[in-house]
Amino acid sequence: MADLNKIAGGYIAAWNESDAARRAALLEAIFTDDVSYRDPLMQGDGHAGVGALIDGVQQRFPGFRFSLKGAPDGFADTIRFSWNLGPEGSESVIEGTDIGIIENGRLRNVTGFLDKVPAQ
């Protein structure tokens, strides 16, 4: 079984990384080349697609940071973990849970669920 803490921690680090070169290195380490990401609001494929999603979230929510909520769990080739998103040092504004399929220690597919979103 892959190290779930390492995978979830790397995933969160990638979503928080604002430097494009460092983010690219994290994407390479955490995701397979053909990664597929889906949630109710967006989708992206491959490192470039996921990187563009991350960039979009960072532009929409400047100064916000992702953090793990609790500990990741999983079995076989599946990981589940929850996260918070909000201004650093403040209560989260958005929360979610992601389910991923692991292949050779990296995420191949990620399906995201939004557990808490601000009122429109």
Rank of each mutant, 00 (worst) to 15 (best):
M1I: 08
D3I: 12
L4K: 09
L4D: 06
K6C: 00
A8I: 03
G9C: 09
G10P: 07
G10H: 06
G10V: 02
Y11F: 14
I12R: 01
A13Q: 10
A14L: 02
N16Q: 12
N16F: 06
E17D: 08
D19T: 04
A21I: 11
A21W: 00
R22E: 15
A24F: 05
D33N: 10
D33K: 15
V35C: 11
V35E: 02
S36H: 13
D39T: 09
M42S: 15
Q43D: 13
G44K: 09
D45K: 10
A48N: 12
A48I: 07
G51F: 01
A52V: 07
A52H: 11
L53A: 05
D55K: 15
Q59N: 13
F61C: 08
G63F: 07
F66I: 09
F66R: 03
L68I: 12
D73Y: 04
G74M: 09
A76S: 08
T78W: 09
T78V: 14
R80K: 10
L85S: 03
L85V: 03
P87I: 09
G89E: 07
E95F: 05
T97Y: 02
D98Y: 00
G100K: 03
I101F: 07
I101H: 07
E103F: 02
N104W: 12
N104I: 05
G105R: 08
G105P: 06
G105Q: 04
L107T: 03
R108S: 15
N109I: 13
F113Q: 10
D115W: 05
K116D: 12
A119W: 06
Q120S: 15
